[in-house]
């Protein structure tokens, strides 16, 4: 549905987006993850035809955004980081205007009522856009993106600035839209990705550093697994035992505990050393109170990917430029 091919964007000597490629299948939700200033907004602006790329192509539903902008834009609904509302218009007037410029063929009033129902904004229909709360502004922004029933929705940080309850409601709306729409959403909030997206593109300093499903990303990094070991023995005696187990890469102190000490033991790629670690502790007469593998959260992956691009997660051919 969306094909981004070797896209790059330079402003003078600054490269904002550097050789970015990815694909989104029809009906999927793709999460665009990266720190602030990574090039997420720029990439989205290129896909939506707001600005041209300096290199590469972006195709939406088979239409090149640069060659056939009108056809491509008919199939895209875009919610920018700040919802593009006219403060002096009422919600109804605003949506009717957007419907007209987006070429809605059916009766405009009906279509406006329909999207207001979908985004739960009908009770604000006659309020001026400038007087809405942040949560409602965001929903009207989404209604605006949906009005011409586009195949593709591009949402730039849709939950930024909302309160926790609004975030949950907004995610719910987005999940309901998936299936009938292909969605690209950007965020720098990690749980958002694992909760809503089927695929993740991690982008940093304009480059794609990883593309995969949230589960696969977690699994790929589990190669270098961490095991939590909690023993009741004194820390300075247990630590050398753990270090002595073949295959252990590093031993670090875990969180302080009431009795004994806990350790975070990093093992080499693909090794499961739980058995050996348990034996090492118990054979010396210490009690083993807890032993469990620590799953790496998306957050850890994100940080490790961002801080060190030479990590195993980087796709083949990706070189570090740190």
């Amino acid at each position: 549905m969306i094909e981004v091919d070797h896209l790059s964007k330079r402003y003078g000597s600054v490269t904002a987006v550097d050789d970015v490629s990815f694909k989104v299948e029809s009906g999927q939700i793709l999460g665009f993850l990266g720190p602030n200033g990574a090039g997420k907004t720029t990439t989205m602006r290129i896909i939506t035809g707001y600005m041209p790329a300096t290199g590469g192509t972006a195709r939406v539903a088979g239409f090149d955004i640069f060659e056939q902008p009108i056809e491509a834009k008919r199939r895209i609904g875009y919610l920018p980081e700040t919802p593009p509302l006219y403060p002096d218009m009422t919600v109804r007037e605003y949506l009717a205007f957007v419907a007209r410029i987006k070429g809605v063929r059916q009766h405009v009033g009906d279509r406006v009522a329909e999207v207001m129902r979908k985004t739960q904004t009908a009770d604000m229909a006659d309020r001026h856009c400038g007087k809405l709360s942040k949560g409602y502004k965001q929903r009207v922004g989404l209604a605006q993106a949906l009005i011409h029933n586009p195949e593709v929705l591009v949402l730039d940080e849709p939950t930024a600035g909302l309160d926790p309850r609004q975030i949950i409601e907004f995610r719910q709306i987005i999940r309901e839209l998936a299936g009938s729409h292909t969605i690209v959403l950007s965020t720098h909030i990690l749980p958002e990705v694992s909760q809503t997206c089927q695929r993740v593109v991690i982008i940093n300093r304009g480059r794609v550093v990883a593309v995969d499903s949230p589960e696969n990303l977690t699994r790929r990094l589990k190669g270098a697994a961490t095991v939590l070991v909690h023993s009741d023995g004194p820390a300075d005696q247990v630590e050398p035992l753990l270090v002595g187990v073949p295959g252990v890469a590093r031993v670090g102190r875990g969180e302080p505990v009431a009795t004994g000490a806990s350790f975070e033991v990093e093992t080499g790629q693909g090794l499961d050393l739980r058995r050996e670690l348990a034996a090492a502790v118990v054979q010396q007469g210490f009690g083993l109170l807890e032993l469990r593998p620590m799953r790496m959260s998306l957050e850890d992956i994100f940080l490790s990917v961002i801080t060190d691009e030479t990590q195993a997660v980087a796709p083949a051919g990706e070189t570090a430029d740190a």
Partner: peptide, 14 residues
């Protein structure tokens, strides 16, 4: 200033 230019420039109009 208000960002509504993004709406106009991404709408299917010239």
């Amino acid at each position: 200033r208000s960002g509504t230019i993004e709406l106009l420039l991404t709408a299917p109009i010239t």
